[in-house]
């Protein structure tokens, strides 16, 4: 093993040249690309983070609006219920009034018809009784007494009417 001292300088110079060449033509571009990728990843992480917070916000909004919609729906149902029951009450009340009115009317009509019937019955009974009486009297009463009775009767009739 002999040591050749020029190897020392050969090595130093060659290494220096290799260092410069590699730095310029290989590592420079490589570092640039790696830095770019780092930026890209950072950007993407930022974007993802932003998207996440945004979606969270949206979700919150959606939840709130859903809650609100639910509440509104509940209110509407409640209102509808109360309106419905009120209307039902009204309808029932109206129906009740109507029915009572109809009943009264009917009662009145019945009363009137009854009165009318009674009146016509009375007159009929009067006529019939007169006829019956006249039939009976025709046989027993003579003309003089008959005349007297007729007068009497006419007088009564005149009184009654």
């Amino acid at each position: 093993m002999t040591i050749t001292w020029t190897n020392f300088f050969v090595q130093v110079i060659a290494f220096g040249i290799l260092y410069l060449l590699l730095s310029k033509y290989a590592f420079g571009p490589l570092f640039g690309i790696m830095e770019k990728r780092r930026q890209l990843v950072k950007e993407q992480i930022d974007t993802a983070e932003r998207n996440r917070s945004e979606s969270e916000r949206f979700l919150e909004e959606q939840k709130q609006s859903l809650q609100q919609a639910r509440k509104e729906a509940y209110d509407i149902i409640e209102q509808a219920k109360s309106t419905g029951s009120k209307q039902a009450d009204d309808i029932i009340a109206a129906a009740r009034g109507e029915s009572s009115r109809l009943k009264e009317e009917a009662v009145r009509d019945i009363e009137a018809e009854k009165n009318k019937a009674i009146a016509s019955l009375k007159s009929e009974v009067g006529g019939l009784s007169v006829q019956i009486a006249s039939k009976i009297l025709e046989k027993q009463v003579d003309a003089g007494a008959q005349g007297e009775l007729v007068d009497q009767y006419l007088k009564d009739v005149g009184k009654k009417s």
């Binding site: 040591i3 001292w5 190897n7 020392f8 300088f9 090595q11 130093v12």
Partner: peptide, 12 residues
Amino acid sequence: ADAAMTMGLALT
């Protein structure tokens, strides 16, 4: 595998 050359690197 040459002492002068590794010493070149080392001294550099």
